[in-house]
């Protein structure tokens, strides 16, 4: 029984990281209706940024959040202006090509600039563990999990209670009507995209003490993020958060009780079942895949 709870806890901690990455992706999709295939690469860039800040300026990865997040926000604005804006009204296939292209550019740029080495940071706390009764929880994973919760709550508050948040939601619900109400749609898009990338900025800095960065690290998390987003209901923030935790737990449990080499297969099967029987996602309202952010 203790073993089961240990597995559960490990899964939830892993899921926290998935959630954090997926929230940014679902935000961008919900508001802009753009499938951002370069999402994982923004994570990679955030991780590299955090790594270099540690390596060159000796800034702790957690402290680096205050630099990485604005930097990723800025990068989001630039990418939105240069790549996303021209294709915002293009057919979805074209948008997919553009973001996949963007991801390849980022990957190879990273390979060119920083080589294929696996970069890690060494901090005093990275393998520290917290004892929760008989269970062991990794300290940096716990931090990542807690911050994932804080960031999600922050986002909910922001979307519900601020003017910008309400404007963003109105665009998600009806782009034309929002425009008629005098909302600057293109500015809101910029904010949405930048917020999405800023979100992986947080995730990147939090991942650095636990994980390692290399040019294609984004694909490892990118695919999972897409599964989470679809599972939680596309554009649904609560769904992304809970979906992330769910995938983490599924991965952990199937790894121990079925077979570690089959754990991806297990959650992809669940993913396919969801697509077949509830295409709006586990937490999405019927038709949410069409309408977006609720």
């Amino acid at each position: 029984m203790i073993e089961f709870f240990q597995v559960l806890v490990s899964g939830i901690m892993l899921g926290g990281i998935y959630s954090l990455i997926s929230i940014g992706l679902t935000l961008i999709f919900g508001i802009m209706r753009i499938l951002n295939f370069a999402h994982g690469e923004y994570l990679m860039i955030a991780m590299y940024l955090s790594f270099w800040l540690f390596k060159l300026l000796n800034i702790d990865p957690y402290v680096s959040i205050i630099i990485v997040v604005p930097a990723l926000f800025l990068l989001g604005i630039i990418s939105q202006k240069l790549v996303i804006k021209p294709i915002i009204n293009a057919p979805p296939t074209m948008q997919i090509f553009a973001t996949v292209g963007l991801s390849l550019v980022f990957q190879n740029l990273a390979l060119f600039l920083w080589k294929a080495d696996y970069r890690t940071v060494k901090t005093s706390y990275q393998t520290a563990t917290i004892h929760l009764g008989p269970m062991l929880v990794s300290f940096p994973r716990m931090v990542a999990f807690l911050i994932a919760i804080i960031v999600s709550l922050g986002f909910f508050y922001f979307l519900k209670n601020t003017y910008t948040g309400k404007a963003l939601r109105s665009i998600a619900q009806n782009r034309e009507a929002a425009m008629l109400m005098g909302i600057d749609v293109s500015k809101m898009y910029m904010i949405a995209f930048a917020l999405g990338t800023a979100c992986v900025g947080v995730a990147g800095a939090l991942l650095m003490p636990v994980y390692y960065v290399f040019p294609t690290v984004g694909t490892y998390f990118g695919v999972t993020a897409f599964v989470v987003v679809v599972l939680g209901g596309m554009g649904n923030m609560t769904g992304a958060f809970l979906g992330g935790l769910l995938i983490g737990v599924i991965e952990s449990i199937s790894g121990v009780y079925i077979d570690p080499s089959l754990k991806e297969a297990v959650y992809f099967i669940i993913f396919i079942l969801v697509l077949l029987f509830k295409p709006s996602g586990l937490f999405g309202l019927r038709g949410a895949e069409e309408v977006g952010l609720k």
Binding site: Y211, Y220, S252, V256, E264
Partner: peptide
């Protein structure tokens, strides 16, 4: 135990 090298979590292993 066998697992996929592409995984990002080995706690189950």
């Amino acid at each position: 135990v066998a697992y996929s090298a592409k995984t990002n979590d080995l706690s189950s292993v």
